[in-house]
Design a protein around this nucleic acid. Sequence first.
DNA 1: ATGCCTCGCACAGCGAGA
Length: 259
Amino acid sequence: MRIATYNINGIKARLLRLLEWLGETTPDVVCLQELKSQDEGFPAADIEAAGYQAIWHGQKSFNGVAILSRAGLDLHETQRGLPGDPEDAQSRYLEAAVNGVIVGCLYLPNGNPQPGPKFDYKLAWMERLAARGEALLACEAPVILAGDWNVIPTTTHDDTFSVRAMADDALMQPESQAAFRRILAQGWIDAIRTFQPSGPAYTFWDYQAGAWARDAGFRIDHLLASPVAADRLVRAGIDRAYRGREKASDHVPVWVELR
DNA sequence: ATGCCTCGCACAGCGAGA
């Protein structure tokens, strides 16, 4: 079973690119982030015509997450919204079981500018995610936590084109990295790094300043596998070339394959 | 030091992204 995550930066603006990628790579399960659409605007009919069923959690203008799975797989929602704060109205978390594999689809807050309330929200959200992660690890089922984590895991060229350029960014602050490490320390495996332990493995390139052309990217889209899922991990990859297409998202798809 | 580019909203230019 191949499970992918893709921050598409607007599902309406990106629909043709999304359908193209689905057709070309035929993932079994897809976690989408940044729908930037209300529930009513989700292109369910187009997704279905492409051979996928879907659940989605939208929001006007911002955020929004969805989980797609190939028609015929057993998909059912297990959680809508990240637990732990009834005041939080942002649509950033959706979770489902697909043929027995639990898939958490997350869009972690950016947190810029830091310091400030947005950074505080990011760190608080990561605490809530850690709590959810702990609960999921208590399940017997394999679990994949996939999404746009908005965290550059290490302060190295492996994860960012420029340590200096990102030094003050919320994505690379010690607090963000520590929170990410705390989640990993629960027992999760960073799937991409299992197959590519070192060297640049970027998943995002800014639209500005010719970032793609000069490979000025960073690694912020991650799939974390629970120990049970990690035992079944046979491959992981980054669909880098899609960044070069017309009207591309600023993120590219990242995926794992489970035996 | 700032903007660079893109999207959504809504119809002009701004907030947000990262």
